[in-house]
Amino acid sequence: MKKYNVVFCGTPEIGATILKQLMAMETLNVCLVVSQPDRPVGRKKEILPTPVKQVALEHNLKIIQPNKIGDDYQIIKQANPDFIITCAYGQFIPEKILQIPTLEALNVHGSLLPKYRGGAPIQYAIWKGETITGISLMRMVKKMDAGPYFAQKQVEITPDDDSGTLFQKMAIAGAELVKEALVPIALKQLPPIEQNEAEVTFCKNITSAEEKIAWEQSATEILNQIRALSPTPNAYTELDGVRFKIHQARLLTEQDLFPLNRKVHFPGEILYLDQEGIIVQTGDQLLKLLIIQKAGKTPINAGNYAINNTDISIGGFFNERFQKK
């Protein structure tokens, strides 16, 4: 049985799942793993190995962590790969690296291309209110996410999904796609499909400024933002200059509105507090904040926090710039 040499490039958990699948395939030999340099993680800023590096170490795979992957061109070339496969690696792959493998340089991309080319496709699918997304196994080319794809697999987005749960679903789908498609690609049994340029959409990396909630948006838009940015880095709002991250929220039903007085309110206004959470006016409907995190503290049930702390009260405003002048 012919074995194909693979150089795998990845960094977070979704990459670790793909790496495990590659190692489990009898037709493949993972000869080199490339991951981002280890960086501080969490509130304690502890230096930890990336999830992909951790898997590589556990299975005694050779691993490199270049600041720029192009600097390790010779190491990758000497691995003599048939495939280079990337998944959420986090660096642009220069063309000289893409030309190394004897068969293909492939990327496991977190969208149904040509939709959501770019660095945050999984988050954007939630943020834009999609109910279906998916994984594409595509050929890497010089232009970002512009190469043809060989296969795709759909993934459902449920109302309860946030980026954390969707990443898990996408990782499973990506592993299945690699298992099903890689050997047929090697045997030229799976022809590439060119992307329709007329249908291309983009999703740039999310900036810190985009994490702040603008309460004049609709309740649905804000909820999607909260879901897209959970469990990290989280959407946030401010009260009297203090930042509160919002981990979880829900839209209110008509039944939830009792005993609220439905007079005219303004975006960001705190209307009601109960043991479940904090009800806030948006640009149209009401939103209930369920889990919040005050700066420097741990996440907590929003209702418990509001009832036991005086800094959040009915009539107050998140992001004061939205209150009535």
Results as ranks from 00 to 15, higher is better:
Q54R: 15
Q65G: 08
V6A: 01
T17S: 07
A79E: 06
P114D: 00
P49E: 10
P184L: 13
I85Q: 07
M170F: 04
I85R: 10
E210V: 01
A16I: 03
P101C: 09
M170T: 03
Q323C: 08
V34H: 00
E58L: 11
I100G: 00
G316W: 07
A125R: 03
Q323I: 03
H247Y: 13
I100L: 02
N261I: 13
E320V: 01
L290K: 14
N60P: 10
I226A: 05
Y4F: 13
W215S: 03
A125G: 01
R321T: 09
T50V: 07
L287C: 07
L260Y: 06
P94M: 13
E211K: 10
I69G: 03
D38A: 10
E254D: 11
K188S: 15
F258V: 15
T133A: 07
V6C: 03
P37H: 02
E58V: 05
I193G: 00
K2W: 06
T86W: 09
L260P: 00
G277P: 07
N67K: 15
I278E: 09
P233T: 10
M140E: 05
T237P: 00
E216C: 06
D71M: 13
Q78S: 15
S230N: 15
M1T: 12
L103H: 06
T158G: 08
T102K: 13
E58S: 15
T207E: 13
V242Y: 00
T253M: 10
E130Q: 12
N205G: 12
N309K: 11
D256M: 02
N261H: 12
Y73V: 06
D160H: 15
L106A: 03
A105W: 02
I14Q: 01
G10E: 05
F322I: 00
I307F: 08
I185E: 03
R139H: 05
F258N: 14
V33C: 01
D145I: 02
N205I: 14
Q255G: 12
L103P: 08
D71K: 15
A16N: 05
K77R: 12
I312H: 01
P233Q: 11
R227F: 07
K204P: 09
D256R: 02
E216F: 15
Q168D: 12
K169P: 04
N319V: 00
P259Q: 05
Q152K: 09
S208P: 06
G316N: 11
I307R: 14
A151N: 12
A209K: 15
